[in-house]
Simulated assay, not measured.
Amino acid sequence: MSDRPTPDPRPYGFEVVRLARLEARLVTYDWAWARDNAARIDDNWRRRRAAQPALFDGPVLVACGCAIDDDTCRLDLFKTPYSRFLAYRDGGSPDGHVANAFAAIVPWSADGAVLLGRMGPHTANAGQIYFPCGTPDLDDVRGESVDFSGSAARELLEETGLRVPDAATEEWVCLRGEGQLAFLRPVRFTEPAAALVERMELYALREDEPELSGIVTVRGADDLDGAMPGFVRAYLASAFEAETGAADVTP
């Protein structure tokens, strides 16, 4: 019998679900919470804009339905102004019918590290450390479908200059908790962490106002940081637990 501890089924309060397929579609939805809290939304937007004038109140996509059957997730999203979404998120996601859903590439280096970015001071999540990602928007809509894979790849390219390798498999990990549905796609790159960090830093130097103020390299659970949101720490704890377990297995 192994003496290794049993993995936490909900690390940092998040359920970790591994998926082989993610399907997302755009639907219409009457968001009662936003309609009933118009004054709160306006006040929150004024406060946010005063602190970060670069914020733009464009349309974003928010989840109103999520069904996971075996290893497939089917997700419903609707369009709403960013100011409504931001007030909802800032208020602790009080409406259980709606969730903040987004996708991100998790860059794994050839030598087993995970690379994350520290958000710049002009962004809505300044100082936080997480994977390159963003709230999906109308640019991700393809007919009635929402392209989460394309959204994640675009954010990775825009924030780091890295492109998803053509040979990368498409598997997902869903982190569910705290009013969030984080869909993470782990991608293994052929370069070691130092080479990837150098590429990302050189890319940032060419940007007038880069999204990221720095790159963070994580090689194990001991590198988790309080500036990382819960879903990031939950994924990393689960992923490094799995990596350790795989290394302990004798062929």
Score class of each variant (00 low, 15 high):
E159W: 09
E159R: 15
T160Q: 04
G161L: 09
G161W: 10
L162D: 05
L162I: 11
V164D: 08
P165H: 11
P165Q: 14
P165G: 11
P165K: 09
A167R: 15
A167D: 15
A167P: 03
A167L: 11
A167Y: 11
A168K: 05
T169V: 10
T169E: 15
E170Y: 01
E170D: 09
E171P: 00
E171L: 03
E171R: 15
E171K: 13
E171H: 14
E171V: 08
E171T: 15
W172A: 08
W172M: 05
W172H: 10
V173A: 07
C174H: 08
C174W: 02
C174R: 04
L175V: 06
L175H: 04
L175P: 02
R176D: 13
R176P: 00
R176H: 12
G177P: 09
G179E: 03
G179M: 05
G179V: 03
Q180H: 06
L181D: 01
L181I: 04
A182K: 06
A182Y: 05
A182V: 01
A182G: 12
F183T: 03
F183A: 06
L184M: 09
P186T: 08
V187C: 05
V187W: 03
V187H: 01
R188T: 02
R188I: 03
R188N: 06
R188F: 01
F189N: 00
T190A: 15
T190H: 10
T190L: 09
T190F: 06
T190G: 15
E191C: 05
E191R: 15
P192D: 07
P192M: 11
A194K: 04
A195D: 12
L196Q: 04
L196H: 06
L196V: 01
V197S: 01
V197M: 03
V197P: 00
E198H: 07
E198V: 06
R199N: 04
R199W: 05
M200N: 02
M200L: 11
M200H: 06
L202T: 10
L202D: 13
L202R: 15
L202K: 13
L202E: 14
